[in-house]
Design a protein around this nucleic acid. Structure first.
Length: 429
RNA sequence: GGGGGGAUUCCCGAGCGGUCAAAGGGGUCAGACUGUAAAUCUGAUGGCUACGCCUUCACAGGUUCGAAUCCUGUUCCCCCCA
């Protein structure tokens, strides 16, 4: 083994529970096959899945073989764990498209080349669809005592709530995931399943099933959930929008900014859970955070590491470049192309060229058109209070008219309200 | 079925018939301070062709020189008694 994965997970705080505390460390001394399941609820993974992806990656770099299971079949059912309400089911077509999307993202984290411990990507729909209902009941269902299933937290929680309810379909979810584990053991020699702490019930169900069906001993490890200092799941911006791994959904810049803005209290945890930095490095960053928090070395490093991993060096460069412009001084002398690259997330409004000729376009109207202000009155106030910038230069005159002289590039004027809200005004002939 | 109370600007909530675009709080936005943080402080918070004008206080009418405030009806909500 290249390193002691168990000890590594331990100091990072990534071990919540295991099915065999005493022996797992030694057991992981020889190459094993590990699996983690991912829900295809969207065509992209989001930051909430990063922890699991990194876990697989850690196992692979330690010399174990990772299997990423995409739940094409289980996604059709919906996992009741950690969900307070019955889920809406996805259509088969939507699921298929989602699975394709997830596959491409996994490639950034895992090495799928053949070799000793090349990663494997599987979709449980491939084996589940062949199962007939009767066969499934007889071979799998037979091994599940209902009283045990009822005792699982995921089920119990839902039954105790009078308003939530739990359908037979979701109740059966556990059987599917349990069978996945047995299947992966049989076909790929998988012996360990890892997941978030909410997966404990499903993982142990798989282990029980393997024991009953095949008389083999499998193992499970759960990680803590990645929550912030207030106990909320990490992965949403202040505005409440999810941060995705797909650059189509969340640009590299926004992704990078998400980590840059991480509060100090959560930064250490994120470094441990989500990066591969060494213990020495992380502890040095902890120290730096105490000594000179204003430098935010932890956040910078976190953003850098994760952006490079998810969006590649080019994505990182774009994000850093955009950051410099956003938080830098006046914008001028750039080309349209550069501006568009820097501001991929910024909404733009098109105006006719005539409007900035001669007299020019009144700034108040422009702000409303660009969507930065709800009314001219609001625009006027922001302006008078010093919250309006044209090309990053503060404007305070409500009579100001925008003309060709205000173009930051060939055809773009950059408007900004407050510290971070930008909008582009594009002039067309 | 009977009796009582209420409906106010994004939310909560105050509002003598004139001086009410409407107190106060929350939220939100902006500024200062900062670390693109937290906390704190300051300002703003219906619209506009803006020292003025226009539209708001459940809805529709009415009284009055003048109504968020009074009257009538309508709708909805809450409480109490049956």
């Amino acid at each position: 083994m290249k390193f002691d994965i168990f000890a590594d997970l331990q100091w990072r705080g990534l071990i919540h529970q295991t099915t065999d505390d005493a022996n797992l460390a030694a057991w992981l001394g020889t190459p094993r096959t590990v699996y983690i399941g991912f829900d295809p609820t969207a065509d992209s993974l989001h930051v909430g899945s990063l922890l699991q992806l990194m876990l697989l990656r850690r196992f692979q770099s330690a010399g174990h073989r990772p299997i990423a299971l995409v739940g094409g079949a289980t996604g059709m059912i919906g996992d009741p764990s950690g969900k307070s309400d019955e889920r809406n089911l996805l259509s088969v077509d939507a699921l298929r498209a989602n699975v394709v999307g997830l596959e491409s993202q996994m490639r950034r984290f895992l090495d799928f080349e053949d070799g000793e411990n090349g990663a494997l990507l599987v979709n449980n729909f491939d084996w589940m669809r062949k199962f007939s209902y009767l066969d499934f009941l007889r071979d799998v269902g037979k091994n599940f005592p209902v009283n045990v299933m009822l005792a699982k937290d995921s089920v119990k929680g839902r039954l105790e709530r009078s308003d939530a309810g739990l359908s037979y379909t979701e109740f059966s979810y556990m059987l599917l995931q349990a069978y996945d584990f047995v299947y992966l053991h049989e076909h790929h020699g998988c012996e360990l399943q890892v997941g978030g702490s909410d997966q404990w019930g499903n993982i142990t169900a798989g282990i029980d099933l393997a024991r009953r069906m095949r008389r083999v001993q499998l193992y499970g490890i759960t990680s803590p959930l990645l929550t912030d200092s207030e106990g909320k799941k990490i992965g949403k911006t202040e505005g409440g929008t999810k941060v995705w791994l797909s650059d189509q959904r969340t640009s590299p810049y926004l992704f990078y900014q998400y980590w840059i803005n991480m509060p100090d209290e959560d930064a250490g945890k994120c470094l441990r859970f989500l990066t591969e930095l060494s213990r020495e490095e992380i502890e040095a960053l902890d120290q730096a955070r105490r000594d000179e928090p204003q430098r935010r070395a932890s956040q910078r490093r976190l953003a850098e590491e994760l952006t490079r991993l998810v969006h590649g060096p080019a994505g990182l460069a774009a994000a850093e470049g955009a950051t410099q412009v956003f938080f830098g001084g006046e914008i001028s002398g750039l080309s349209d192309r550069e501006l568009v690259e820097i501001f991929p997330d910024v909404p733009s409004t098109t105006i006719a060229q005539e409007t900035i000729r001669g007299e020019g376009l009144g700034i108040l109207g422009a702000l409303v058109q660009a969507g930065l202000s709800k009314s001219k009155g609001e625009a006027r106030r922001s302006l008078q209070q010093g919250g309006i910038y044209v090309n990053n230069r503060r404007m305070t005159d409500p009579e100001k008219r925008l003309t060709a002289a205000d173009l930051a590039s060939e055809t773009v004027i950059v408007l900004r309200s407050g510290k971070k809200r930008y909008a582009l005004l594009r002039v067309t002939g």
